[in-house]
Amino acid sequence: MSFTPAPRWHKLLGRTGLYLAAVVVFVVSVFPFYYAFLTSLRSGQDLFTPSYLPEVFDWSNYVSVLSDTGIARSLFNSFAVATLTVGGCLLVSITASFALARIQFRGKGTLLLTILCFSMFPQVAVLSGMFELIRLFGLYDNLGALILSYLTFSLPFTVWVLTTFMRSLPGDLEEAGIMDGASLWVTITRIYAPLLAPAMITTGLLAFIGAWNEFMFALTFVISPENRTVPVAISMLQGASRFELPWANIMASSVLATLPIIVLVLIFQRRIVSGLTSGAVKG
């Protein structure tokens, strides 16, 4: 059978369809956030007529949200909790992932499977046990409770992703280390850790986003408004009456909570995409 090229109009039609689809996907992806931003710039009666283009640039919602509602404090809380969680996880993950990726030992397969299972099990399953643990440490209504509970999902995640990365590093480095008589500890800290820096940035970012976005533990283990993280603070914003939510303020806070993440994602998008997909495609 011979290969016949498609007629020209056929090709043109295909191209048009392609661009049309691309535009649709783009608009659907971006519109909700764009609309939230538009809403955050409007106030009063303006809110009650849907509009699709920016007409006013009124930043007063941002001012009121940051000064009155405690969103500034929650942004700080979220940042502190996410940073400390990720830092702790990365620290213990380096050595663990080296062993899991580079050393052959009995029980390794089971260990990897256990870690994978932990990263996937439902948060609610540890809720009451975690309650007990947090009370035991006297951490209830304290940011420490969040760091402790976030380890349940961040730690298996960082160990798993770093192990995947560690496997892709060349093994000769280790041989060189052994030749020089370097101990395992030196091999890890001097040879592998620096090479792993890019992977640690990627893993850290993904774990950071996970901790920043977490809601159930933050809602359950903290009650004082000044200890809330951003997602909880946004979910609890109330208006003057019980029946009317302050939509402009909610949207302004939403933009503030999302912007840091979007900036990080835009800067590191290549790494993030490869980090997200590496486990699945290579696994």
Binding site: A22, F33, Y35, F215, S235, A257, I261
Partner: peptide, 29 residues
């Protein structure tokens, strides 16, 4: 650009997305 734009829904906190959609699904406005 399209691939970048697609990362936005993924990166948005679920609570923010819930509030945004709650506002877009508002019965009157």
């Amino acid at each position: 650009i399209l691939r970048t734009a697609m990362l936005i829904p993924w990166a948005i906190p679920t609570i923010v997305s819930a509030k945004m959609w709650g506002w877009m699904f508002h019965d009157q406005y």
